[in-house]
């Protein structure tokens, strides 16, 4: 549990900065208060403001309102306990660790990283690379974003800072070809993990989603069992559209985990609750800054706490 604590501490730290700008967390809203209709309305506002989504919010609020009206719930403290319980049961125990290739296979683990434009893919890759390196693994990067200006260079700079190598192709070239070469290189060099950066794409762009599928197929063909992990990077400031993103990327490349980036702002990323409802895809990591060390494994308990803990020291 000390492990959880430390994560919690870090997320809280990230959120602590936001004290001044946020009007007050649920905790201060509820603790020590008598329950009434007005308080219920404020609760609704809080949940909506965290991007939890109308459906989930209404479900939770309805539960509180019914309990209140039937006299079962009378204080804010009871509401808080109820909400935490509800939210936590919405997050079943899930394996949130990175998946690796079978130890005996002698094959590299491949992590495919995808997401909409500007979500934080490349930076998140730098973060993953650093953690993997820190745990003693050898890492190779594949620069499959051949589209965006400066994208290859961006990844290259990270690789130089982190001391790993990059396989790259032509600007404007076929990203699947880069994936192909990267797999070859990973096999030849016998690295532990290959991480593929891809170009940002909107989930509505059918041809680009097919392109992503093609990259995945190439990997599967070159390295049986791969990609072992397909991470969808979501920007925590995104609203309800994130649900659509998770659904569509999930359909196109079987997403195995979510990397929730930019949780260091005032955005709560509550939309991952709705995503969990809709897709069941586990959130595996959260990004809490722009440097490679600014990453934490996702912990639902800490996350729910963070939804509540805003205006605390």
């Amino acid at each position: 549990m000390s492990f959880l604590k430390s994560i919690f501490g870090k997320v809280k730290q990230g959120l602590a900065k936001t004290r001044d700008t946020f009007i007050g967390g649920l905790r201060s809203l509820l603790l020590g208060k008598r329950l009434d209709e007005d308080l219920i309305r404020q609760l609704e506002a809080k949940l909506i403001s965290a991007d939890v989504g109308v459906k989930t919010t209404m479900r939770l609020v309805k539960g509180v309102r019914e309990a209140y009206r039937s006299g079962k719930m009378q204080t804010g403290d009871e509401v808080l306990a109820y909400l935490k319980d509800e939210l936590k049961t919405m997050w079943p125990e899930q394996d949130r660790a990175l998946r690796f290739a079978d130890a005996g296979s002698g094959k590299p683990t491949v992590i495919l990283v995808a997401g909409v434009n500007g979500a934080g893919k490349t930076t998140s890759i730098a973060k993953l690379t650093k953690s993997l390196r820190d745990s003693g693994k050898t890492v190779l990067l594949g620069a499959c974003d051949t589209f965006r200006a400066g994208a290859v260079r961006q990844l290259e700079i990270w690789s130089e800072r982190l001391g790993v190598e990059v396989v790259k192709g032509q600007q404007g070239g076929d990203p699947a070809a880069v994936a192909f070469d990267a797999c070859d290189a990973a096999l030849a060099r016998g690295v532990d993990v290959l991480v593929l950066d891809t170009a940002g794409r909107l989930h509505t762009q059918e041809s680009l989603m097919r392109e992503l599928g093609k990259i995945r197929e190439i990997v599967a063909r070159k390295i049986p069992g791969g990609p072992h992990e397909t991470l969808l990077v979501l920007d925590a400031t995104t609203g309800q559209n994130a649900v659509r993103q998770a659904e569509e990327f999930g359909r196109a490349v079987t997403v195995t985990g979510i990397f929730l980036a930019k949780l260091d702002g005032t955005a709560k990323g509550g939309v991952v609750i709705a995503i969990h409802d809709a897709t069941g895809i586990p959130v595996k990591f959260v990004g809490v800054g722009e440097r490679p060390e600014d990453v934490q494994p996702f912990d639902p308990e800490a996350f729910v706490e963070a939804l509540f803990e805003v205006d605390q020291d």
């Binding site: 700008t21 403001s49 991007d51 909409v116 400031t237 005032t266 955005a267 709560k268």
Partner: peptide, 15 residues
């Protein structure tokens, strides 16, 4: 501003 931004748009835009 990203058009996909959620509720937090209010905070960032205000500041």
């Amino acid at each position: 501003v990203d058009a996909m931004t959620g509720q937090d748009a209010v905070n960032s835009a205000r500041v």
